[in-house]
Design a protein around this nucleic acid. Structure first.
Length: 219
DNA sequence: AAGTCCCC
DNA sequence: CGAT
């Protein structure tokens, strides 16, 4: 059955003021969550975006919601249309929106209603360097980050790039919420744990929910 | 500016 | 670093 080693991870861990990790928060809905991801992908396929420095992101991304985050050689921006299809980004599936609101509430952020959802797909070798989420123009609203599939080795830093960095294993169903004093903290993905996941194999999905207040212009 | 390289 |  499922009586191997006991899972000693706390179900709720406060990393520091404003940052709360909810372990296994989404476990019961895993099948439905993966299903809606596939539906979003059908309308807005994953793609490897370019960066202003001339690089290419190793994680593939897509978006849903009123605003989607886009990186190009011209910079970072939120757009209302997928630049690949020239159609609006697909709506945020209700199961995802509800999950994000429930997680934000459990973390102490009561009035969070996301209008932007970024979906990152990591495979073996995918990384994301330390960065801040600061394109949303409303730092009162938290970031809600859901991990699905293969475990990610998440880097959690501080307000400055040189601050100490912790590495946390984010597992299937874990939700990390950060806001308030932690809203602009640096974070990234160092890599993936070697073990495949029963439902997703070698793939890790990360779904982040944001509230975009002031839209940027197209790149 | 979320990449990449380079040094300890 | 060179990009914005």
């Amino acid at each position: 059955m499922d009586l191997l080693l006991p899972d000693t991870r706390p179900e709720r861990e406060q990393l520091e003021p404003g940052a709360i990790l909810l372990r296994q928060f989404a476990a019961e809905q895993e099948k439905e969550l993966l299903c809606v991801l596939a539906q979003v992908e059908q309308q807005a396929p994953f793609r490897h975006m370019r960066t202003p420095g001339g690089g290419t992101m190793s994680a593939a991304m897509t978006c849903c919601g009123n605003w989607g985050w886009v990186s190009s050689p011209q910079g970072y921006t939120y757009t209302t249309q997928d630049p690949l299809s020239h159609h609006p980004w697909p709506p945020i599936p209700t199961v995802l929106s509800h999950l994000a609101q429930k997680a934000a509430q459990a973390a102490g952020y009561d009035k969070f209603i996301p209008n932007a959802c970024l979906i990152n797909r990591y495979q073996t070798g995918s990384l994301m360097g330390l960065h801040q989420d600061k394109d949303e123009q409303d730092i009162m609203q938290p970031i809600v980050s859901l991990s699905l599939g293969r475990t990610g080795l998440f880097m959690w830093g501080g307000k400055k790039r040189n601050d100490r960095v912790r590495v946390l294993a984010l597992e299937h169903g874990d939700v990390l919420v950060w806001g308030g004093p932690a809203r602009l903290h640096y974070h990234g993905i160092k890599g993936l744990a070697p073990q495949p996941h029963p439902l997703t194999g070698l793939t890790r999905f990360n779904i982040t929910f944001r509230y975009v207040a002031i839209p940027s212009s197209q790149p």
